[in-house]
């Protein structure tokens, strides 16, 4: 077990220095928009695509957690305490994975355009939400960060946000009004995608792994199914889905990656029993569950169906 004291201290320092929990530079992480063709179709509006950087950060988190997993419960565990900033971003850039996750963000942005939604994107205003500080109980650190982010967005006249992952959606929608006195209108992309036409059967049957925050905290599990219905994609739900969905183990990966792996394995076993292709809609769930078999992000499936 990594002691919470060191984990929180390191996250807090990194966020203070760079705005993200890993201490990586923004120019290194947020590159999905470089060379993106969609630029031509977005402009200056008060609705902004706000990725919260979670998809972009996840390949780095995954790499780091791989090491934490190996060191956990060995003498090396204590060595990590003296590394407040992860050197992995510099030493071991997860190039292929970063491209994959950037691709997911691009597909979400493209699907929004395809769905006729007007929005803008400003890389300099796209920040990490601070969710880890909140989860760890560091309200002081979280408040400070949320005030900073909210102020930056307000300065530039942003009123509405389109989010793409469950954690950022929850934090911006439910916590920012309380902690940062910021009333943005927050919509998750799955709530607003609407392709308007009923498509024929796509010949895929999915089993969905609902993220806990979509299933319970935000109660928006129906949205992904609404989109799949409109695209003619079938799905087979298991008992532990929607409001009863089960965790992938991700939220404790900084404290005990070994326990995370066991939780994820249990969940993968449960999902794979249907024999269908498995899809999730959160970058953390995606990296944790795919350690045991193939998993897709729902945005990849949606994009594939829309562009077929």
């Amino acid at each position: 077990m990594y002691h919470p004291h060191y984990v929180i201290r390191s996250i807090e320092q990194n966020i203070k220095n760079t705005g993200n929990p890993l201490g990586l530079s923004r120019s290194q992480i947020n590159t999905w928009w470089e060379g993106w063709e969609g630029w031509k179709k977005v402009g200056e509006k008060d609705t902004m695509l706000f990725t919260g950087l979670l998809y972009q950060l996840t390949p780095y988190v995954d790499k780091l957690v791989d090491y934490l997993y190996k060191f956990e419960n060995t003498f090396l565990e204590k060595v990590t305490r003296f590394m407040p900033k992860s050197p992995l971003g510099i030493l071991l850039k997860p190039q292929k994975e970063a491209e994959h996750f950037n691709g997911i963000v691009r597909k979400i942005a493209d699907s929004l355009i395809k769905s006729g939604i007007d929005f803008c994107y400003k890389p300099e205003l796209d920040f990490y939400s601070g969710v880890l500080l909140y989860d760890m109980g560091d309200d002081e650190g979280f408040t400070e960060h949320s005030l900073f982010v909210a102020e930056k967005l307000r300065e530039k006249g942003i009123k509405k946000l389109i989010t793409i992952d469950p954690h950022t959606t929850y934090v911006l929608r439910e916590l920012y009004p309380e902690y940062a006195n910021a009333e943005f209108e927050v919509k998750n992309y799955l709530e607003i995608l609407d392709f308007k036409s009923k498509k024929e059967n796509e010949n895929i049957t999915l089993t969905l792994h609902d993220p806990c925050y979509y299933g319970r905290y935000l109660e928006i599990s129906d949205e992904s199914r609404r989109i799949l219905d409109s695209l003619g994609i079938e799905y087979k739900d298991i008992r532990n889905s929607g409001k009863l969905t089960s965790c992938c183990g991700g939220p404790i990966e900084s404290i005990s990656p070994k326990l995370t792996k066991e939780v994820a394995e249990n969940r993968y076993d449960e999902l794979s029993k249907t024999g269908c292709e498995i899809a999730t809609m959160c970058p953390i769930c995606l990296v944790n569950l795919r350690k045991f078999g193939e998993i897709k992000d729902i945005s990849e499936i949606i994009w594939g169906a829309v562009n077929a």
């Binding site: 077990m1 002691h3 919470p4 984990v7 989860d135 760890m136 806990c212 319970r216 905290y217 409001k243 009863l244 969905t245 089960s246 965790c247 183990g249 991700g250 939220p251 404790i252 404290i255 005990s256 326990l259 939780v263």
Partner: peptide, 16 residues
């Protein structure tokens, strides 16, 4: 103790 940091706060407990 610090075992409370091992919860994933997934919310299933509250749901059931």
């Amino acid at each position: 103790g610090y075992e409370c940091f091992l919860s994933s706060l997934c919310g299933k407990c509250k749901e059931v």
